[in-house]
Design a binder for these strands. Structure first.
Length: 643
RNA sequence: GCUCGCAUAGCUCAGGCGGUAGAGCACUUCAUUGGUAAUGAAGAGGUCCCCGGUUCAACUCCGGGUGUGAGCACCA
């Protein structure tokens, strides 16, 4: 006589063991219809699961986050079934749930085409109409291997053989399709309401580039047609914001064949870049960093000493000149240590914070490049703090505070923190690792924010914190980092004289707030959809005349604004005012100042924001005040208007 | 680097189952001097990514290269 307790605290008693679905039916037919799975005592199960003892039960529907997972996972099976109906020779491999959808990898003699995808989607629809029951079953490993061997599913055999342990395996069957799977799954193939196959591409078997390539089909699935539509709209919105598109449209930068992965910055893009750089310079100055600059070409021997050559020589550009081999620097740390090494350092000099807007070049694999997000030539807002072990925590805390303030100014309020700790292959004693990991933990706890522990993902030379931000599309972008390094300073001969006159190696903290300017600008462009806040906008104001008569007045006004430090231009073209407003609005100019006879007469301008808001006429002084206030609030979102 | 796709005017894109190409916007000129998201007219603009091959003939077909897109792999 199981007593089933529901999430609202109500309990129901049943004469005999019941399935999750039967409980749902006893509550109401509407719920039964919507039932996808159940959560019994916190564990996700199929709706066919029998409850014979007392249990806490939550009925999972599409509204539940887990319900969506069940739908997507089941949809992967649905797709695999459709693929095998159309292409019986295609072998199934794996088909997990990913963010917003799922994929399934197939081994097939050729690549699937977009036409194939349409056909597969159609067959998926047919299978939904057939409303096949999804049945769970248990099989021994040996039976399962025999079955898949008979079916010619070599990959499934491999998967089973790689699952440790001897326990029986669960299978899900729908019609003629059966797949090894932990589940849970939807009760029947009629449960799908909204799905779409989105793309097809190659993917390596088991994620290993030395293995053969499979055909991966991506799809998305939702609880309702409306949700699917919203998702597709989100994709469209993301496409509109694509920084590569906006970079062209707003004349910010370009790429060309002769310099793959290296941006040509145009005046407007470079203006944003420089504004960001000036800002970072000021912030770092306030945090007592000393800015330096180090060579682009450094003899290869330094990279051998630092250990980079042995690990990354394939990804380094090198230059030969007069029988000497140089590398174009792929990173700044060895150079910063050279600066540290000049002159004898005392413990009194620590912490020493060196910063460089360091231009780096890396030969990134051709297929990995992506607009500004991954380039071969980039500038890091790089910094290295030389300090003692005792100083680590305070330095990390200062860095975190700086990072939060910077991200806020750029309009990013949500920061996601991760701590990566000691990997198996590492240098340094456990004692030192303990201490530095603890310092990072303390610094993270001091932020009062949640953080995630990623064991074993630290660098070989020390643990690190990674700071990601969330843009307005909800996408997570890793930008900032601070890493503890016990190894490199010693390798490159850095030391200082301690209080007791002994010679000690400093700890080096590698840190960056933005990461690379290129990537960060890409993120900013997409975050703001090109409509940069006034402080960043390459052109803050465009003055527009209505007829030729106001030309001189406009130019004088422009000159006065420029003298106040604003970025202004004047559009005196012989075009209608509506045309000019349209054009500059499309160029995302924050403020348009319109001048006609009335304004000339009253010594004012008529101000319009790019969102269309009419601020009315105002004097030069009032306009300056308005602009100054807008610039001063940076991109902080609490005051961000959506114009 | 791997799989598949793509490469035509400054931009966004049409086009032809082999006979050297077109639109819209932008640009130039002329007219127009207009009050808050497109004034009208005319003109100019292309080695159809590069190198080979097939062919009487290649922008089109084939091979190779480069760049680029999606994904995978990589990312100090």
């Amino acid at each position: 006589m199981p007593k089933i307790t529901l999430p609202d605290g109500s309990a129901r008693e049943y004469e005999n063991p019941v399935t999750v679905m039967e409980v749902a039916e006893s509550i109401g037919p509407g719920l039964a219809k919507a039932t996808l799975a159940g959560r019994v005592d916190g564990k996700l199960v199929d709706s066919s699961t029998v409850l014979s003892a007392d249990a806490d039960l939550a009925i999972i529907t599409e509204r539940d986050g887990d319900g969506l997972e069940v739908i997507r996972h089941s949809c992967a099976h649905l797709m695999a079934q459709a693929v095998q109906r159309l292409f019986p020779k295609a072998q199934v491999t794996i088909g997990p749930v990913v963010e917003d959808g799922f994929f399934y990898d197939f081994a097939f003699s050729r690549a699937f085409t977009p036409e194939d995808l349409q056909a597969i989607e159609k067959v998926m629809g047919d299978i939904v109409k057939e409303n096949l029951t999804v049945e769970r079953s248990i099989m021994s490993r040996s039976d399962a291997v025999t079955m898949f061997k008979e079916m010619g599913e070599e990959y499934k055999v491999q998967i089973i053989e790689s699952i440790p342990g001897d326990e029986d395996l669960s299978f899900y069957r729908q019609g003629d399709f059966i797949d090894l799977c932990r589940g849970p799954h939807v009760p029947s193939t009629g449960a799908f309401k909204a799905f779409k196959l989105t793309s097809v591409a190659g993917a390596y078997w088991r994620g290993d580039a030395s293995n053969e390539m499979l055909q991966r089909i991506h799809g998305t699935a939702w609880g309702s047609k409306k949700d699917l539509k919203l998702f597709l709209q989100r994709l469209e919105e993301a496409e509109k914001r694509d920084h590569r598109k906006l970079g062209k449209h707003l004349d910010l930068f370009h790429f060309q064949e002769e310099a793959p992965g290296m941006a040509f910055w145009h005046p407007k893009g470079w203006s944003i870049y420089q504004t960001v750089q000036r800002y970072m310079r000021k912030v770092q100055d306030e945090h007592n960093y000393k800015e330096i600059n180090t060579p682009q070409l450094v003899d290869y021997s330094l990279w051998e000493k630092s250990g980079h050559a042995s690990k990354f020589s394939d990804e380094m550009f090198s230059v030969e000149s007069e029988n000497r081999m140089y590398a174009i620097k792929p990173m700044n740390c060895p150079c910063h240590i050279q600066v540290f090494n000049q002159g004898l350092k005392s413990y009194r000099d620590l912490p020493l914070r060196l910063a460089e807007f360091g231009s780096c070049h890396r030969y990134e694999p051709s297929g990995s490049m992506h607009g500004l997000m991954r380039v071969r030539s980039f500038v890091q807002d790089d910094g290295h703090i030389f300090c003692t072990e005792e100083q680590i925590q305070a330095e990390v805390a200062d860095f975190m505070a700086m990072l939060f303030a910077v991200y806020k100014d750029f309009g990013f309020d949500e920061v996601i923190l991760r701590l990566s700790t000691r990997p198996e292959k590492r240098v340094g004693s456990d004692e030192v690792w303990d201490k530095s990991e603890q310092s990072l933990k303390d610094a993270l706890n001091a932020t009062g924010l949640p953080w995630e522990l990623v064991p074993g993902e630290g660098a070989f030379y020390g643990p690190k914190i990674e700071c990601s931000l969330k843009d307005c599309m909800g996408r997570v972008q890793q930008c900032g980092t601070i890493q503890v390094d016990f190894s490199t300073p010693g390798r490159l001969g850095a030391h200082y004289v301690a209080e007791d006159s002994s010679k000690k190696e400093p700890v080096m903290l590698h840190r960056a707030v933005l990461g690379s300017f290129e990537r960060f600008l890409g993120i900013l462009i997409e975050h703001y959809a090109g409509a940069m806040p006034t402080w960043l906008a390459p052109e803050q104001v465009v003055i527009l005349n209505i007829t030729d008569k106001q030309g001189d007045y406009c130019l004088n006004f422009e000159e006065s604004l420029k003298n106040k430090g604003f970025r202004v231009s004047t559009d005196l073209r012989n075009e209608k005012i509506g045309f000019k407003i349209r054009e500059h609005t499309l160029q995302r100019i924050p403020y348009l100042a319109v001048v006609g006879d009335k304004e000339v007469e009253s010594g004012t301008v008529a101000v319009r924001k790019r969102g269309g808001e009419d601020l009315g006429t105002m004097t030069f002084d009032d306009f300056c005040t308005l602009l100054s206030q807008d610039v001063a609030r940076f991109g902080r979102s609490e005051q961000l208007d959506n114009s």
